[in-house]
């Protein structure tokens, strides 16, 4: 048995369409999770900096727990394990929506938000304390000064590590294949099992993932050069 390359399998026809639909699902799942994890990350970061103990401890526990357990286990937990925890009505509603997509989004969002919160927090710490003091003495409340004065600056400084987290999230979304979400990796494997052309199918998926990450890394370098360096030098 000699391996015959057949690139046509992945560049046209039915299997090409499968791969494209996989890319679409990967992008969908990533975009939704990125938006949600950013918002959740902001909230957790603010909670983590709160001086109100219970809030602080909750955020602290959240960060440590979700950063220190594998994403795959979290995906399994949300998909198979949350069933017993949620009320029946919620389960039925979720199932009608196609729970596998939601479970993947929930897991990716929670996992990534923990990392994002830490990045934002270190961004905030690099903003001089005087800014907060100035804002407070100008009559802003703590929360308002945080959201209007400190966070906008911190987020700008945090953009490179954030983009990195988003890239990781996109790559991590490949784990959603384990619960039947038909994203890119799932489709690549489908093509393999239908055509036995694993080499071609994996190559196609690799090109998409690596291409995406090169493009984003490129943009990040540009951002660093055009936006961040001028601020830093000042």
């Amino acid at each position: 048995m000699n391996y015959q390359f057949d690139w046509a399998v992945v560049t046209s026809g039915k299997y090409f369409e499968w791969l494209v639909s996989g890319v679409v699902v990967t992008v969908k799942i990533s975009v939704v999770s990125i938006a949600l994890s950013f918002l959740l990350g902001l909230v957790i970061a603010v909670m983590r900096m709160s001086r109100f103990r219970p809030v602080y401890w909750f955020a602290h526990g959240y960060l440590e727990f979700f950063r220190n357990t594998p994403l795959l286990v979290q995906i399994f937990f949300w998909y198979f394990g949350s069933y017993k925890v949620l009320p029946d009505a919620v389960n039925q509603w979720l199932n009608a929506q196609g729970f596998e997509f939601a479970a993947a989004v929930i897991a990716l969002t929670i996992y990534t938000s923990a990392f994002i919160a830490e990045d934002i927090r270190s961004g905030v710490r690099s903003i001089p304390k005087e800014q907060m003091e100035a804002a407070r003495s100008a009559g802003f409340s703590y929360v308002r000064s945080m959201f209007y004065i400190i966070l906008p600056q911190a987020v700008r400084l945090t953009i490179p590590p954030l983009i990195n987290q988003f890239l990781n999230l996109t790559k991590n979304s490949s784990l959603a294949m384990t619960i039947g979400v038909a994203e890119l990796m799932y489709q690549a494997r489908q093509v393999e099992s239908y055509t036995f052309k694993g080499f071609e199918a994996f190559s196609a998926a690799t090109v998409v993932y690596v291409g995406l990450s090169f493009a984003i890394t490129g943009l990040m370098t540009l951002y660093d050069r055009k936006v961040l360096q001028p601020i830093k030098v000042r």
């Binding site: 594998p70 017993k84 925890v85």
Partner: peptide
Amino acid sequence: YPTEIFLFIAVIYFVICFAFT
């Protein structure tokens, strides 16, 4: 028992990883 099983291994992973963190 998926809830119990996955919760259990999540805790095991957490204990190991947290110790090293």
